[in-house]
Computed example of a mutant assay.
Amino acid sequence: MRLFAAVVPPVEVLEPLAAAVARLRGRPDAGRLRWTRPEGWHVTVAFYGEVPAGAVAELGDRLARAAARRRGPLSLGLAGGGRFSDTVLWTAATGDVEELGRLAAGAEAAGRRTRGVGEGAGSGAGARGPGGERRYRPHLTLARQRHGGGADLAPYTDALRDFTTPRREVPALTLIRSHLPLRGVAGAQPHYEPVASWPLGGA
């Protein structure tokens, strides 16, 4: 199964985001983008790719320990907008981002140490540095270019420049299964299924 670890912002953070995205989707070229669904919004901390069913329990045990090592719930919000290579539009996580980075490092290490996952584990997402290393940049993906879409993402990031949400507590680390969209089905999107969650700080 295709798995990743993430934190899910609470409704008080996602509601203002939904309102901002609704305005963005009113732009003339918004149809050139494939917009993520609100029910699947999350901030990825580690991506594992295909994980054998027999390795899930071990991965879960290691993620539980990674979550327990944190000091407690994270205070997180969302603000602004950015893009990766003019193909992905996102909004940035704000608040306890250093602690979120430590959680991401722990979740990535959990994958590397799990038999059957190992080399498939990687950081949540971000830009590669000059030495080729991946720098974790916590964000929530809003949209991706459709095949042959060619939308200019600069106006979207400009429109998000002053966007901000309140910061609220995120209490848990969640392991999520990604079901890839059906081939050949117009508008099909990945479906995300929570597998298990562990309290941050072990409370």
Rank of each mutant, 00 (worst) to 15 (best):
31 G>I: 06
18 A>V: 10
45 V>G: 03
6 A>M: 08
73 P>N: 08
68 A>E: 14
131 G>S: 13
146 R>L: 12
117 V>G: 00
70 R>P: 06
191 H>V: 12
199 P>F: 02
188 A>K: 07
152 D>T: 09
129 G>M: 07
26 G>D: 09
91 T>H: 03
96 D>R: 11
160 L>I: 04
102 R>F: 10
127 A>F: 14
176 I>N: 02
156 Y>R: 07
172 A>C: 07
42 H>K: 07
95 G>M: 11
70 R>C: 15
68 A>D: 10
15 E>C: 11
179 H>R: 13
138 P>W: 14
112 R>K: 10
80 G>T: 11
2 R>K: 09
34 R>A: 13
8 V>W: 12
48 Y>D: 08
143 A>L: 12
99 E>Y: 09
196 A>R: 15
96 D>L: 09
101 G>W: 07
153 L>A: 04
90 W>T: 13
126 G>V: 00
123 S>M: 14
167 R>S: 03
123 S>K: 06
5 A>M: 06
30 A>V: 12
139 H>N: 09
15 E>K: 12
150 G>P: 12
125 A>C: 02
148 G>M: 01
166 P>A: 01
59 L>G: 03
187 G>Y: 05
79 A>H: 11
175 L>K: 01
68 A>F: 10
182 L>V: 04
142 L>G: 08
40 G>F: 02
51 V>T: 04
3 L>K: 08
22 A>N: 07
56 V>W: 02
199 P>Q: 09
156 Y>Q: 13
195 V>L: 14
89 L>N: 14
197 S>F: 03
27 R>Y: 08
139 H>S: 00
1 M>I: 04
89 L>S: 02
164 T>V: 10
189 Q>H: 15
80 G>W: 13
